[in-house]
Simulated assay, not measured.
Amino acid sequence: MGIDEIISVVPYDKQWTILFQNERVNLFKAFKDDAIDIQHFGSTSVQGMFAKPIVDILIGVKTLDLKNSVANNLIQLGYEGFGEMDGTGRLYFRKRQEHAYNLAVVIWNSEQWINNLLIRDYLRNNPHIAQQYSERKLKAITKGYTALLSYSDEKADYVSNILEQAKKSGRYNYKK
């Protein structure tokens, strides 16, 4: 299966937090000592937001050169690996079973790590911005952006703007 897939956007589901907590336990076992931290991020981590019904999980590691045992453990859990995406410093894995998950494996405390947590926390603490972002997502779907890559491209500038707002607010201080 290729990386592009048909997506939908649905209202917030409080089960997403529970699904994350359960999968987090499995992922710590799979990564063993290689995972420094595992965080729920993306729209499913923001109460009240519309989101793709796919739980996004951010895994902070020391190196992107994962051990074979980690890769094998992820396969055993049902994950499909796509490698590093466009030189972004992020390894991408996904699981599509009864519940869907995306894994972003990044260097802990790197720019990727920090930026994803900045966006999450900014949206959590600014419900009006989260609502605007939800509306933007729904508009993208109604305009026909229902494939993952086109949907992501359609909202990329908006997400960059949210990141800049979060950085300017100075409220979220993630130091390297």
Rank of each mutant, 00 (worst) to 15 (best):
A100N: 14
D86I: 03
V10A: 04
R124W: 09
Y174Q: 11
L123V: 13
K29A: 13
K29I: 09
L117R: 06
K29E: 15
H40T: 03
L64E: 08
G2N: 14
G83Q: 07
W113Y: 11
G83T: 04
E5Q: 12
G83N: 04
I7S: 01
Y122E: 11
K62C: 00
N26E: 14
P53S: 10
F28P: 05
N68P: 01
T146D: 13
Q21I: 00
Y133D: 10
Q97D: 10
K67W: 01
Y92E: 03
L91W: 03
L149M: 15
S110L: 07
T63N: 12
T146E: 06
F20R: 00
A30D: 09
P127L: 08
L77C: 04
N115D: 15
N126P: 05
G170S: 11
I7F: 01
V25P: 01
E98P: 01
I162V: 15
Y151V: 10
F82W: 10
K137F: 07
V61I: 10
K176A: 13
L123G: 09
Y122W: 14
A147D: 15
Y101Q: 03
L19T: 02
N173L: 14
I75D: 09
S110T: 06
Y133P: 07
M1E: 11
A147M: 12
E98G: 03
T88A: 07
Y92I: 09
E111G: 02
L66G: 07
H128R: 13
R24T: 05
Y174M: 12
Q97K: 12
K155T: 13
A35H: 06
K143Q: 13
D153R: 15
G81N: 09
S150L: 11
Q15N: 15
S69N: 08
I114E: 10
G2S: 12
V10P: 00
F20T: 01
Y158D: 12
N116T: 06
N102F: 05
E80G: 00
D13L: 01
K52T: 08
A130D: 12
L123A: 08
Q39W: 06
A140I: 06
L58N: 05
Y174N: 11
E5M: 07
G170F: 02
P127T: 14
L66C: 07
A104Y: 11
N161E: 15
L149A: 13
F82T: 03
N73I: 02
Y174K: 05
L58A: 05
